[in-house]
């Protein structure tokens, strides 16, 4: 542990967004052909996968398929992308405004709170256990300037804030935390989980190891049945982050779920990462976090009316929230006509 000391606050690496050109193309055609000036929120889908490279994190990707089709005929494709291991679907909401002024006027703080509340409610209703991807719910706000082909946008990954923050007891590469026999069993079990189209895009799961070093990966809803009959039980998630000393963002809401659903104070978590598409125990991490609740506040946690504070607007390298991309080169019909002449 280089920069995280035992007993220090557990720090999470923020999620990053990457918006593909296809997303803006489809948003433009949706806007022109279907939405018009209707600016009601649109449900969208983001995609992510575990980190596959030791030097670069994965991001939440927004693609053409993230948006509903403007022709209504393409529902079959979204069905086929389910089970794609490189595309775990994450639900999100797009707020596209009609003017730059209204884009800038969006109250991002209350929007973030609103989305955090959805996550909190899903945790309490049990929806987050059946469909764990809702834990990573995100928000995109945008203004598509179709006169200049500029797209202004900003993304938030709402994270419920534990108060006080979780502290870190231990964080190590999985290969060091497990015995070599266990590491091999976990690796094999993870590869199996990732290769099955039924589970490949299920980003949160349970890892169990029995006394004979056999490992099984199970669905979150098996927790009750599962907790007594195994030696070690870890809470695993697809970690988009590549850093050796920090877990990625999705663990935040997962910890909130683990704590408020199952009331665990000490959590062993497993940051699942890959190398070239295969489970890698040297890159994956195992950590232990402690969650403490001050006296007298325990009741709050059980109370689902009391939504914890949330953080999550993504900052770019200038530490600003707003981003803008110009696609005039590939979208402006006059420019295209000139370059084609």
């Amino acid at each position: 542990m280089a920069n995280q000391q035992a007993g220090s606050i557990l720090q999470f690496a923020p999620f990053q967004s990457a918006v593909d050109e296809g997303f803006w193309h489809r948003l433009s055609s949706l806007k022109l052909n279907k939405l018009g000036i209707d600016d009601s929120p649109i449900p969208i889908t983001g995609f992510y996968a575990p980190c596959t490279h030791s030097q670069v994190s994965n991001h939440l990707t927004l693609l053409m398929e993230s948006l509903p089709s403007d022709s209504d005929e393409e529902s079959s494709v979204t069905a086929t992308s389910h089970g794609n291991r490189n595309r775990c679907s994450v639900p999100g909401t797009l707020y596209n405004t009609n003017t730059l002024e209204s884009f800038r006027a969006i109250d991002r703080e209350s929007l973030l709170k609103e989305e955090a509340k959805k996550i909190w409610e899903d945790i309490h209703s049990g929806k987050a256990i059946d469909d764990s991807a809702v834990l990573s719910r995100f928000v995109l706000i945008s203004f598509a300037d179709l006169k200049k082909w500029n797209f202004h946008y900003s993304v938030a990954f709402p994270a419920l804030v534990l108060n006080p923050p979780a502290t870190l007891v231990d964080l190590r590469p999985a290969s060091q935390w497990f015995s070599s026999q266990e590491a091999e069993a976990v690796r094999a079990a993870c590869n199996e989980w990732r290769n099955s189209s039924a589970t490949a895009d299920e980003p949160f799961f349970l890892v169990s190891i029995d006394s004979n070093s056999n490992s099984t990966i199970r669905h979150l809803k098996d927790w009750e049945a599962f907790q007594n009959d195994c030696q070690k039980l870890l809470f695993g998630f697809y970690d988009p982050c590549h850093l050796q000393n920090n877990p990625g963002w999705p663990l935040r809401n997962f910890l909130a779920l683990i704590f408020s659903r199952w009331n665990l104070k000490s959590v062993h978590f497993f940051c699942y990462r890959e190398n070239r598409g295969f489970a890698d125990m040297g890159l994956s991490l195992v950590g232990e976090a402690l969650i403490t609740v001050p006296q007298g506040r325990a009741a709050e946690i059980g109370d689902h009316q009391c939504v914890p504070n949330a953080v999550g607007w993504e900052l770019n390298k200038q530490r600003k929230v707003y981003r803008c991309i110009s696609l005039a080169k590939s979208m402006d019909p006059t420019r295209l006509a000139i370059s084609a002449a």
């Binding site: 557990l10 999470f12 923020p14 994270a159 804030v161 920090n246 504070n309 999550g312 530490r319």
Partner: peptide, 23 residues
């Protein structure tokens, strides 16, 4: 974001967020 006064949702002010310099 920095100009917002009621900034308790600021990612920069959150102790559990790894700040970008580390990234």
């Amino acid at each position: 974001m920095a100009e917002y006064e009621e900034s308790n949702s600021l990612i920069e002010a959150d102790p559990a967020t790894l700040q970008p310099t580390y990234l």
